[in-house]
Amino acid sequence: MAIEARLVDERDTQWEADVQDYRVFIVHDTQGWDVYDIDNQTHSDVLAWAQEQVAQRPGARYALAIRITNDLGLGLLWLTPDPDDLPAAA
């Protein structure tokens, strides 16, 4: 897989947020999913937790998002495909 990376000026950022609140979807091999909120953890810790959950559930996959609250309310910033777009388990 080729990655296209380009050098940028980091000063072009309009805003940033120090958010450590995640939402994890554990998608079952059948239709449906379980949803968990995990707060005040590192990305690595949340990713490891999600991978552990999937390892215990044959055919399961996970979707991971950062939870952000702003003027529009609660929103999700997807770090993986959202649950509806996840590929089938291998």
Rank of each mutant, 00 (worst) to 15 (best):
D82N: 15
D37Q: 04
I68L: 10
A88M: 15
D39F: 13
Q56D: 12
D85F: 14
A65C: 04
A90P: 13
R6C: 03
D39K: 09
L76P: 01
R61S: 12
A60L: 08
N40V: 01
R67Q: 11
A55F: 07
I66Q: 07
I38N: 05
H43R: 07
A65K: 03
P83W: 13
P87R: 08
A63H: 01
R57Y: 05
V8Q: 06
E52N: 12
Q53C: 09
Q53V: 03
L47F: 14
H43K: 08
V27K: 07
A63I: 02
R61W: 05
V46P: 03
M1H: 10
P58L: 09
R6Y: 10
V19P: 02
G73V: 04
V19G: 04
D12W: 11
R11S: 13
T13E: 11
F25H: 14
L86F: 08
R23T: 03
D39L: 10
G75A: 02
I26L: 13
A90E: 14
Q31D: 14
L79N: 04
A63L: 02
L86N: 10
H43D: 10
D18N: 09
W33E: 10
Y62A: 02
Q51H: 09
S44T: 13
I38W: 05
P87S: 12
E16D: 04
D34I: 02
P83D: 10
V19S: 11
F25W: 15
F25V: 01
T13A: 15
D84H: 07
E4R: 07
Q53M: 14
M1D: 10
T69H: 06
T69W: 03
G73K: 00
E10R: 05
P58D: 13
A50W: 01
G59Q: 05
A17W: 06
A17T: 11
R57D: 05
L77V: 12
I66P: 03
V8R: 07
A89W: 13
Y36E: 04
L86P: 06
P83H: 12
Q51K: 11
D29I: 02
L86G: 06
D85T: 06
L64E: 12
A60R: 05
L72E: 11
Q41R: 12
L77Q: 10
D45E: 15
L7A: 13
W78M: 05
L72A: 15
D45T: 10
Q14W: 13
Q56Y: 01
T30S: 12
V24G: 00
P58S: 11
L79F: 08
V24H: 00
W78Y: 11
N70W: 01
Y22I: 09
A89M: 07
D82I: 01
D45G: 11
R57W: 05
H28I: 01
L86H: 02
E4G: 04
L74Q: 07
T80I: 08
T69Q: 07
T80E: 12
G59Y: 08
L64A: 06
Q14P: 00
W33K: 03
Q53N: 09
Q41P: 03
Y36S: 00
Q56V: 02
D34Y: 04
E4D: 15
A65P: 01
F25N: 05
D37F: 07
T30K: 06
E16R: 02
A63N: 00
V24S: 02
Y62W: 06
A55P: 01
G73S: 03
Y22N: 09
A5L: 12
A63S: 15
